[in-house]
Write a protein that binds this DNA or RNA. Structure first.
Length: 288
DNA sequence: GTCAGACCTATGCG
DNA sequence: ACGCATAGGTCTG
């Protein structure tokens, strides 16, 4: 497929927004809506194959948000030195359009865990509760379906090394199983309403609600704040992070979260979520 | 309304 | 080596 606007597949899949893609021999492998995708970028060509059968170009375009006017978005969010550096370094990074269910479960798992651990949890869940698809003798596992997780016991879910999150996953799965429209209904809501509705789910606080709003509900103004983004925001504002007496960073409170994220929306505007993703990848890559 | 403390687990640091 | 803090936070009291 010919790309008609700028896109960088590596940045998009490496930046930490999505956990189940892996690169091998120059190709990215992922499983999206039960389709195994094999993708590679060669300049302005995006090469892909799908198993077990063909998927339409529009599916790929939609998934990688190739419909976003990225030049315009980057121009609009380019408001300070940090974001400018991030844009220079990672130009072409796009937000991936995830399914609501997998995004929600993924980010509930992601709380208070490192990326390597998150990837393990999601792989374990998929291997235990997802469907197996064999391609060229290699096994892939789809993301667990609602029903499968709703029927599983908390202890079975815990076997996937998700720890105390098992309780939340089980409860969310049961709620969605009992009310299949629960999540899709929320598409009607604007960002603020959606965020607050999501927060009523167990294991979903402000951070997870913002991630799901941004990555699965097209709310590009959502600006998730984690420990890394918090540091950048204070840096941009020329202030220090609140610290305890022993010098360690104070935990982020809900009121501080609210204040910082509304600052970010004022500062970056309607596409603040894109700014967040560029900043996140930038600050983390700088730290290494 | 606000605030510590606890929390599963693997990884990475000293 | 091996104990200890930390990680894309949230919940409880």
């Amino acid at each position: 497929m010919k790309l008609d606007s700028h896109f960088n597949l590596d940045h998009t899949l490496s930046c930490g927004q999505i956990f189940r893609w892996a690169k091998a021999n120059g190709w990215w492998y992922g499983i999206v809506e039960g389709n195994i995708l094999k993708v590679r970028q060669d300049g302005d060509e995006l090469l892909y194959t799908a198993y077990p059968e063909y998927v339409a170009e529009d599916f790929i375009k939609r998934y990688f948000r190739l419909d976003d006017d990225l030049s315009n978005i980057l121009r609009r969010i380019n408001k300070d030195v940090e974001i400018n550096n991030a844009i220079q370094q990672f130009n072409g990074l796009r937000i991936v359009r995830q399914s609501v269910w997998s995004c929600l479960i993924s980010y509930v798992c992601a709380t208070n865990a490192s990326i390597a651990v998150i990837e393990n949890m999601l792989r374990n869940l998929s291997e235990k509760f997802g469907d197996e698809i064999i391609v060229n003798g290699k096994a892939f596992f789809s993301f667990p379906k609602v029903k499968k997780l709703a029927k599983a016991s908390v202890n079975e879910i815990k076997q996937c090394k998700v720890g105390y999150r098992a309780q939340y996953l089980s409860e969310i799965a049961k709620q969605v199983e009992n009310n299949p429209n629960l999540l899709e209904e929320l598409r009607k809501s604007d960002y603020i309403e959606l965020r607050d509705e999501l927060r009523s789910l167990p294991g979903v606080g402000p951070k997870v609600a913002d991630c799901v709003s941004l990555f699965a509900f097209d709310k590009l103004e959502a600006f998730p704040i984690d420990v890394w983004i918090r540091r950048v925001i204070y840096q941009i504002r020329g202030a220090g992070i609140p610290r305890t007496k022993d010098g360690t960073e104070k935990p982020l409170t809900v009121s501080e979260y609210t204040e910082l994220s509304s600052f970010a929306r004022r500062h970056y505007g309607l596409f603040a979520g894109y700014a967040q993703e560029y900043l996140f990848y930038y600050i983390r890559s700088k730290d290494r």
